[in-house]
Nucleic acid binder design. Structure first.
Lengths: 190, 190
DNA sequence: CCATAAGCGGATGAGTCATCCGTTTCAACG
DNA sequence: CGTTGAAACGGATGACTCATCCGCTTATGG
């Protein structure tokens, strides 16, 4: 599975493509590979070689945000109170989903369909599972909720916050956190 | 605003188009107007004349389900206990969203962009508002939740239940109701 | 039965997508 | 250094989707 390191020019092109793609995502423009290639003044084939599909490119764009979230998860695992740990991590996840438009599709995609972020997402799932196990053991959350529910629920909250396309980023973030609080209230068992 | 009645052949074609489109939706095939036209053995232009965009066609497909939900809302308004009324109606909404794949996009779309279901959706919003007002007055739900939150939250739950594309319809419905219950627990103020 | 407006259909041009293959560039090695 | 082969490049191209336009057909009501 080990890939030989990219040639210098290839690495440069790859990075440039991701940078351009990031702008597309931030501006809400559709991520069309031909279009990205033209903007980057790079041959279409080069773009397709690096990223066979728009999803693959989007993954690369979302990578830093996902990595950051993984670090947050690791940090959450050092928190002693299971409820606080879970709550803080979920808030971080919602923040990532609402802050970076590249994140939700990657988060929602099936893990095994992902080339670049598959491992990271599996890591997140493990962290989720651990946080949930602790919370269950402490008896602070609804016992019927499993790890398999968490990603969908987070995506659902982010989706709900984004449905009002008229709202600005700030209101959407606020709504996302409000919705998360409703869910947390529903989960909590004092 | 009153439209003269359609000519007989036109009405027939329209109905046929919607029927074919319904199959597409049920099978999860993308609703491409050219494609629908060919399947229906009807000229492309005819389809475009009746439904300028795929969204418009989807609306027509979703119409019966939305009408049914409106009737449910009216029924809920006759229930005396505000909490029961709200809960039952929300369950009906989730059921509609999860049962009919045509419903979620229509539900999530901005009301004012809709040709056929705009009035119905406004009616639903009014019913929602009334149910919420009663629940607030009775002090049984979180006071910060407004009518504007309800549609997004319902869409979010439906979305969460559908993220696991691997699951069958039954499991998805079950999960949707579980998620709704979590939300309801979070909303409830005893 | 006729006139006419409403409706029909499919050919077509604009636009997007992704592949193929001849050319160029990098980097390892003598 | 110069050579060489593999790696990477690029853009022309054919397949495909989209939606419009306009000449033809059919329902309807007088």
């Amino acid at each position: 599975m080990s890939t030989p390191p990219l040639r210098k020019d290839a690495a440069q092109n790859r990075q440039r493509i991701v940078e351009i793609a990031r702008r597309y995502v931030d501006d809400g423009r559709p991520l069309q590979l031909n279009d990205v290639a033209r903007t980057a003044s790079i041959g279409v084939a080069t773009v397709y070689r690096h990223f066979p599909t728009p999803e693959a490119l989007l993954e690369a764009v979302a990578l830093p945000a996902i990595e950051k979230l993984v670090r947050r998860a690791e940090h959450a695992l050092t928190e002693v109170d299971p409820w606080t740990a879970l709550r803080d991590f979920l808030a971080a996840a919602i923040e990532a989903l609402l802050t970076d438009p590249a994140v939700p599709p990657v988060f929602a995609a099936a893990t095994n369909s992902l080339e670049h972020t598959g491992d990271l997402k599996r890591g997140l799932a493990t962290a989720f599972a651990e946080l949930l196990t602790r919370a269950h053991a402490a008896g602070v959350i609804d016992s019927s909720v499993t790890e398999a529910d968490m990603t969908p629920l987070m995506c659902g909250i982010a989706y709900a916050a984004n449905v009002h396309s008229a709202l600005g980023p700030t209101e959407r973030a606020t709504n996302g956190l409000r919705y998360l609080n409703l869910l947390l209230t529903g989960l909590y068992r004092p």
